[in-house]
């Protein structure tokens, strides 16, 4: 067992974990932060994306023991301090960027990382950045639109509301 301490959504947490404990398991089972989802076992679907030290990573493919001291942010930590939706989350609702909601936490976390790196991405850049996030419901149209809208771009000319 390895002792780890990390900050999750601004709160310090610590505990003993087995070497094999994945960050996704620790978040979901240890901390009951079940917004982070696990949709595959080959590190491709992206439902488990969280931020570690400000960067998007796949929490199903990272060991907690390897992240001692890390600053972790999950979907549960993305709303405004008063609990209202952040502008990115609000854009997903406004533009119908989610249906079943299962991939959504990973999409939001990836989108937030993109906008941090690239505040005004083109459609092409948004689509490319989502290479590691799979959605089966939306056909991506409204996800891409929501992310562009969240970046302050006018999306009214994009076909269909």
């Amino acid at each position: 067992m390895t002792q780890v301490t990390m900050t999750v959504n601004g709160k310090s947490v610590s505990g003993k974990v087995e070497g094999r404990t994945l960050l996704a398991e620790f978040l979901r089972e240890g901390l009951r932060l079940t917004g982070t989802h696990v949709g595959c076992d080959t590190s491709q679907c992206g439902a488990c994306v969280v931020h570690v030290n400000g960067k998007a990573i796949k929490s199903c493919t990272a060991l907690v023991a390897d992240l001692d001291g890390a600053d972790v942010r999950t979907i549960e930590g993305m709303a405004n301090p008063d609990g209202s939706l952040s502008s990115l989350q609000q854009a997903f609702q406004d533009h119908h960027g989610l249906q079943c909601g299962f991939c959504t936490p990973g999409m939001v976390m990836s989108a937030a990382a993109l906008l941090k790196e690239n505040p005004k991405p083109t459609e092409h850049e948004v689509r490319g950045y989502l290479e590691g996030n799979i959605c089966r419901c939306t056909g991506y149209h409204n996800i891409v639109k929501a992310i562009m809208a969240a970046s302050g771009q006018d999306v009214s000319q994009i076909a269909a509301e």
């Binding site: 992206g46 960067k55 998007a56 990573i57 796949k58 493919t61 990272a62 990836s110 993109l114 590691g132």
Partner: peptide, 9 residues
């Protein structure tokens, strides 16, 4: 290589 999240690890 991979995707953005993979490239970060």
């Amino acid at each position: 290589i991979g995707d953005p999240a993979v490239r970060n690890r």
